[in-house]
Amino acid sequence: MAIVADHLGLSWTELARELNFSVDEINQIRVENPNSLISQSFMLLKKWVTRDGKNATTDALTSVLTKINRIDIVTLLE
């Protein structure tokens, strides 16, 4: 997760939308982690794993990252 969080940057909100997080949930992550995109990205991934449990797999994440054109991160995960 740390590799993904380190590289997402501003794309974390796009990833959040693709992972079916609501606008309110995205804003809450922003408010709770106001000074760091990496912290926002990491919190998103943590919430995703908590919410989706065993369905929050590397394959699922890779699929969504591909959908938002972040092949650079997919390559890092391989």
Rank of each mutant, 00 (worst) to 15 (best):
M1Y: 15
M1D: 04
M1N: 11
A2S: 15
A2N: 15
A2D: 15
I3H: 05
V4M: 00
V4K: 02
V4P: 01
A5P: 01
A5D: 03
A5C: 07
A5H: 03
D6E: 15
D6P: 08
D6H: 12
D6S: 08
H7G: 03
H7N: 08
H7F: 05
H7M: 10
L8G: 00
L8P: 00
L8C: 02
L8S: 01
L8T: 01
G9P: 01
G9L: 00
G9T: 00
G9W: 02
L10W: 11
L10D: 13
L10V: 14
L10F: 14
L10I: 11
S11V: 02
S11M: 00
S11L: 00
S11P: 00
S11G: 08
S11I: 06
W12S: 00
W12R: 02
W12P: 06
W12G: 00
T13Y: 12
T13Q: 09
T13C: 05
T13G: 06
T13K: 05
T13H: 09
E14C: 08
E14G: 06
E14I: 08
E14T: 09
L15R: 01
L15G: 01
L15T: 01
A16R: 01
A16L: 00
A16K: 01
A16W: 02
A16S: 01
R17P: 01
R17T: 13
R17W: 11
E18Y: 04
E18P: 00
E18L: 04
E18A: 09
E18T: 06
L19V: 04
L19N: 02
L19Q: 03
L19K: 01
L19W: 05
L19Y: 01
L19R: 02
L19F: 06
L19S: 00
L19E: 01
N20V: 04
N20R: 09
N20I: 04
N20P: 00
N20Q: 07
F21P: 03
F21T: 01
F21E: 00
F21Y: 07
F21A: 02
S22C: 14
V23G: 13
V23Y: 05
V23H: 14
V23Q: 15
V23S: 12
V23I: 12
V23K: 10
V23N: 15
D24H: 12
D24E: 14
D24P: 07
D24I: 06
D24A: 11
D24R: 08
E25S: 03
E25C: 02
E25N: 04
E25F: 03
E25A: 06
I26A: 05
I26E: 02
I26T: 03
I26V: 11
N27C: 08
N27T: 09
N27V: 06
Q28L: 08
I29S: 02
I29E: 09
I29F: 03
I29H: 06
I29P: 02
R30P: 08
R30F: 04
R30S: 12
R30G: 06
V31T: 14
V31D: 15
V31S: 13
V31G: 11
V31K: 14
E32T: 10
E32V: 07
E32L: 08
E32C: 08
E32Q: 11
N33Q: 15
N33S: 13
N33I: 08
N33V: 10
P34T: 07
P34I: 00
P34L: 01
P34S: 10
P34M: 04
N35W: 05
N35I: 07
N35G: 12
N35A: 08
S36G: 08
S36Y: 02
S36P: 01
S36I: 02
S36W: 05
L37Q: 13
L37N: 07
I38V: 14
I38S: 15
I38E: 15
I38C: 12
I38K: 14
I38P: 12
I38D: 08
S39F: 06
S39Q: 15
S39V: 09
S39Y: 04
S39M: 12
S39E: 11
Q40E: 01
Q40S: 07
Q40T: 03
Q40W: 03
Q40I: 04
S41E: 01
S41R: 03
S41I: 03
S41L: 00
S41A: 14
S41N: 03
S41G: 12
F42W: 14
F42A: 14
F42T: 15
F42Q: 15
F42P: 02
M43L: 10
M43T: 14
L44R: 02
L44H: 03
L44E: 01
L44K: 07
L45P: 01
L45N: 02
L45D: 00
L45G: 01
K46F: 03
K46Y: 04
K46W: 05
K46P: 01
K46H: 09
K46V: 07
K46S: 13
K46L: 06
K46M: 09
K46D: 14
K47T: 10
K47F: 10
K47W: 10
K47D: 09
K47L: 11
W48N: 00
W48V: 01
W48G: 02
V49G: 09
V49C: 11
V49N: 14
V49A: 14
T50V: 13
T50L: 14
T50K: 15
T50Q: 13
T50H: 14
R51K: 05
R51A: 03
R51M: 04
R51I: 04
D52Y: 03
D52S: 05
D52E: 13
D52T: 04
D52C: 05
D52N: 04
G53Y: 00
G53M: 03
G53H: 07
G53K: 10
G53S: 07
G53A: 06
K54M: 11
K54P: 11
K54E: 10
K54Q: 12
N55I: 08
N55K: 13
N55P: 04
N55A: 14
A56E: 05
A56D: 04
T57P: 01
T57E: 02
T57C: 14
T57V: 10
T57F: 06
T57Q: 07
T58K: 14
T58A: 12
T58R: 12
T58L: 13
D59G: 13
D59T: 11
D59I: 06
D59A: 13
D59H: 12
A60D: 04
A60H: 15
A60F: 11
L61S: 04
L61G: 00
L61F: 02
L61V: 01
T62C: 08
T62F: 09
T62G: 09
S63A: 13
S63L: 14
S63C: 11
S63K: 13
S63R: 13
V64S: 12
V64D: 02
V64N: 08
V64M: 15
V64F: 15
V64Q: 15
L65W: 01
L65C: 05
L65E: 02
L65I: 02
T66Q: 15
T66H: 13
T66A: 10
T66R: 12
T66W: 09
T66E: 09
T66K: 11
T66Y: 13
T66C: 09
K67W: 04
K67G: 05
K67P: 04
K67S: 08
K67A: 10
I68Q: 02
I68F: 00
I68N: 10
I68W: 01
I68V: 08
I68H: 01
N69K: 11
N69M: 04
N69W: 00
N69L: 04
N69C: 05
R70E: 05
R70T: 01
R70W: 02
R70S: 03
I71N: 10
I71R: 13
I71H: 09
I71P: 12
I71M: 14
D72Y: 04
D72E: 05
I73N: 05
I73G: 00
I73Q: 00
I73K: 00
V74P: 02
V74K: 08
T75F: 08
T75N: 15
T75E: 15
T75G: 13
T75P: 08
L76F: 08
L76E: 09
L76S: 09
L76N: 08
L77C: 10
L77H: 03
L77V: 10
L77A: 02
L77T: 06
E78V: 09
E78D: 13
E78M: 09
E78P: 11
E78C: 08
